[in-house]
Design a protein around this nucleic acid. Sequence first.
DNA 1: GAGCTTGATTGAAACGTTACAAAAATCCTG
DNA 2: CAGGATTTTTGTAACGTTTCAATCAAGCTC
Lengths: 343, 343
Amino acid sequence: MATIRDVARLADVSVATVSNVLNSVDRVSPELSARVRAAMEKLSYAPHAGARSLRKRSSGLIGLIVGDITNPFFSDLFEAVEDAAAACGYLVLLCNSNERSEREEAHLRMLRTQRIDGLILAPTGAASMNRASLLAQLEIPVVLVDRAMEGLGYDAVVLDNRRAGFEATRHLIGCGHKRIGLVNGPDVLRTAAERLAGYREALLGAGLSVDPDLIRDGAFRQQPAEQAMSELLALPQPPSAIFATNNLMTVGVMKVLADRGLACPEDISVIGIDDLPWAEAVSPQLSAVAQPVRAMGEAALDLLLRRLSGSLQGPGTTSVMAPRLHIRRSCGMPATGRPAHVG
Amino acid sequence: MATIRDVARLADVSVATVSNVLNSVDRVSPELSARVRAAMEKLSYAPHAGARSLRKRSSGLIGLIVGDITNPFFSDLFEAVEDAAAACGYLVLLCNSNERSEREEAHLRMLRTQRIDGLILAPTGAASMNRASLLAQLEIPVVLVDRAMEGLGYDAVVLDNRRAGFEATRHLIGCGHKRIGLVNGPDVLRTAAERLAGYREALLGAGLSVDPDLIRDGAFRQQPAEQAMSELLALPQPPSAIFATNNLMTVGVMKVLADRGLACPEDISVIGIDDLPWAEAVSPQLSAVAQPVRAMGEAALDLLLRRLSGSLQGPGTTSVMAPRLHIRRSCGMPATGRPAHVG
DNA sequence: GAGCTTGATTGAAACGTTACAAAAATCCTG
DNA sequence: CAGGATTTTTGTAACGTTTCAATCAAGCTC
């Protein structure tokens, strides 16, 4: 494979000149520039990123760590980040932690040896001391997405979770529901706690009471959510509507419904957080509080780029994005009395 | 950030020794090895991948180019590839071409400057001369996934598309359907052509005729599939069952059904290729011919690794994977006569 | 214990770039 | 047209590794 020397030789200039046209800096005469470009073309020259990163102390790589690339939220996020990054000449190194903190840490280490210029992190699980120190060792700008971590001074892009919880619940209340089941994430997580807060606020604001029996932990995952949903249905007074606080759990809830032949929204109403690409393709079409994923990805990259260019300085800012309620068909009036199929 | 010299100094050995323990080669005494390891720990040393790749002429990076990371098929594929790659110490550089060949080419160029060691490519669109030459310039092993390209001598991992088409169609026939609509990809693509061949074979084998009116091009995308589906429903004699040859188009088909309030499988049966994570969560639970995505990803990486290690030589082999029919609830007996809601 | 063999350790030359200072070429100005 | 001020071009020293030949130490053999 051709090196910069080969190009220089063929164009009959110095390597420094080739480097200059490569980096389109300095003033190199149009004539030489053309000769160099022709030589590069002829040799189909591609610079060596490793050598460049060695010398420049910057790699043109940015890292993105997500918990589960299979989750539409994260694949959309990647798409948005990569689109924006490519436009600025950055390449995105995607790491899938599979929600396992050991893998996340392993990835962090690999990203360090790759000398990435910046990192966008959607942290999985609880904050750990270990992770905090690994992040610090990176010595590069970090932007948190989806889940903020207090006190580390990083920039963050998050959803207005309280409002998301509030709006979903209020919509259900507006349909006439009084007993609304909540399938939530573990409340040690900020996102889950805030969504719960929104739920309570809506309930209380409408003069309804908050029944702790109706609040279940679905661990933000499908299986546990199915379990939680089953418990909810087994209650002496089951809820007439369900609010699932993320997409995986919404799927779990729907699965239980499908398994038991319960009709939605006739027997029970459902709303979720996170829109799903197929929300309009199923019957009933699913109502949901959507996160502006693309905007979040772009905002995160923008923050990162501004840190990298030095145009943004000082302590981390967290930008809070507004959720958007998509009303479709899965929420209706409460069924009168207890659904026939249950129990 | 600490370099290998710092480690050497602290451990009071030569840099060569540090390098040796780093690469766990040669015979370095346990004593020195321990001292070096301690020093690395203390300095929290991370080697510089760029420098290493410069010297070793291998980067530890492998590339994966897909058309749409948002498609569950591809995100599952990435997950499988990354899992397997991480286990061998490789990092995966994921590129999302968004089904645009210009972006694919741009990515190919970036991957070349990154000096990736190998590439797994799920080519988008038709084979292009340009791409072929870009691939050749890479001068590294390439494995094709999902869609083979003839005559370039690359390894490939593909589905047995004919059989997938055959089994889906036969299932529908087994339910009693005689007029089966096909929403297929563009038949310039091998995969689409083969799936069509399976469809014909099943029909003909059952003594049924192949009605060209029932065969539509949905371009492997959701929107065009919706259009195709609408046309199918508008036929004087609409089909009693639909076979959509990929997941996006299945979503499109279901969306049209949902929009029109048609019940599945009562009014019309549906089967698709590609299982979907939420296939069991919707009603009706969706029948589908699943691709063994994980196995395909692992097979692709395995092929690549064997090329890299030199244990596999010679012309490219293509490994054909068997589809698996998942029968659920979306296929039933044909409705008697034309569905009431249509027209 | 002298010579040999074997095994562990090391010095220094690449690898392909960029950045900086120095050199060369060009353009002014009086 | 000499001399100075600019603008282009270039030589070369890093950057952080690995590799390979060379050195050094230790263990044998007779």
